[in-house]
């Protein structure tokens, strides 16, 4: 039963499949088997959050899941955030407010922020900081990121 098995999932709206040993981490499966290298690996023990993806609509660490566990699941990765070439308001806000420098934590940061704004569309700065503490960034001091999430929340609330 340690043999590779077929795994099917929907990623960013597309049906995808591949083969993986049970021990293969979801993060590796996404990156290496499906070629979705936008999801980054930063610690492989669930603290840095760079590998955060949306699993059935909710943010989760892809380094703490086996690919086989996502068989049948619906995933969204950073590659699926912009639709039809149009940036999501979070992406726009990160760009506008210099919410990224090296960009390595950015995919996880955006996925976590996306989930957070769905459960809390009108957060205070303190709530934003608490939510973003799920993802570590070493470049920005979080200053631009916090501003960006606030701005995106404001914009998303006022959007029809």
């Amino acid at each position: 039963m340690a043999e590779p098995r077929k795994i099917r999932m929907t990623v960013n709206g597309q049906a995808r499949e591949g083969w993986a040993e049970p021990r293969r981490l979801l993060a590796d499966f996404l990156r290496e088997d499906l070629g979705l290298t936008g999801t980054h690996i930063g610690c492989e023990h669930g603290i840095c959050g760079a590998c955060t993806v949306l699993l059935n609509g909710e943010a989760a660490r892809s380094c703490l899941m086996l690919a086989v566990q996502a068989d049948g699941a619906e995933l969204m990765t950073i590659e699926g955030l912009a639709r039809g070439g149009v940036l999501h308001p979070l992406q726009e806000a990160f760009w506008e407010h210099h919410g990224l420098q090296c960009g390595f934590c950015t995919p996880g940061m955006l996925m976590a922020a996306y989930d957070f704004l769905r459960v809390n569309p009108d957060p205070t700065e303190e709530e934003i900081r608490e939510a973003l503490s799920a993802v570590l960034c070493r470049c920005t001091g979080y200053q631009g990121i916090v501003r960006a999430v606030k701005a995106a929340a404001d914009r998303m609330r006022s959007a029809p």
């Binding site: 959050g49 955060t52 699993l55």
Partner: peptide
Amino acid sequence: GHLPTRTR
């Protein structure tokens, strides 16, 4: 933990 770890 954090929201993304509480998901699982």
